[in-house]
Amino acid sequence: MSEKEVKNLERLFEDRIARDEKIEPKDWMPEKYRQTHIRQISQHAHSEIVGMLPEGNWITRAPSLRRKVALLAKVQDEAGHGLYLYSACETLGVSRDELYDQLHTGKAKYSSIFNYPTITWADIGAIGWLVDGAAIINQVPLCSTSYGPYARAMIRVCKEESFHQRQGFEIMMNLAKGSKEQKAMAQDALNRWWWPSLMMLGPTDAESVHTEQSMKWKLKRKTNDELRQQFIDQTVPQAELIGLTIPDSDLKWNEERGSYDFGAIDWDEFWQVVKGHGPCNQERMSARVNAWENGEWVRDAAMAYAEKQEDKKLKKAI
């Protein structure tokens, strides 16, 4: 294809997206579109899978049977969501194993928030309430993103996730109205998870490299700063409702903007965690690598068995 032909195809492609047409796996697409989508969808999938670990940490210690089954179901959903997203990514011509390999070698990123430890039960509440809350804000607009398989995966994810945030908020609410110790536990978790949750919505617009292109392809509908503001505005009243204090002394309602003003985010911390220096980066990665490597003989056995069965069937047929 000549350069001119490619340019022409690209123009037609961009027009289709502008008209809100969906792009499907076998459609022609610019290489950059494919690569950007592989990167974003796989990063999203990796976040689901790594995200199982901090919460999984408390399944065996959940304080009641009701909490235990809810948490177990939630963490299981995350495995499911990872699976949907890896599948969407596979339609772009990359296998799940290759994607795992990128994760395990550190080539691919996942959401930095999962590199923080869950040290008390209240952290499970805080994750559901804040981390899932922030994730939903990110994810809902993706239900109408331009790449069909991604949009369909996100519709399923959003539908299933609706209980996740409630689950977390309910935990926090119960702690907040519980004993002194419980309330302190809830406040402590909020103090530790608040800032990382704000960071989770991505670097400020000025620092964000992908925003403009992503907007065009509907991988993003709002900028990071807009999403962050939306998250703060929706979460502050919820904290007030259950009597917890947001750990930001600069936080105050701005009548003129109709939004909350908030304090400065420590972006150094964010970049350090992204670079691998968070409290749990190594633990998270080794847990994933171990699961994969310890599972290899199991996966091999299933393949070998399937092939033997297939052979038997063929022999019978002859």
Binding site: M52, I59, L72, Q76, Y86, G295, V298
Partner: peptide, 22 residues
């Protein structure tokens, strides 16, 4: 079984085993 959630040999098996735990 719930100790295994997140550590299975494949995502599919992980989900299946969690279903049994539930």
């Amino acid at each position: 079984l719930s100790e295994l959630c997140g550590h299975g040999p494949s995502l599919e098996t992980d989900i299946a085993i969690t279903n049994m735990a539930l």
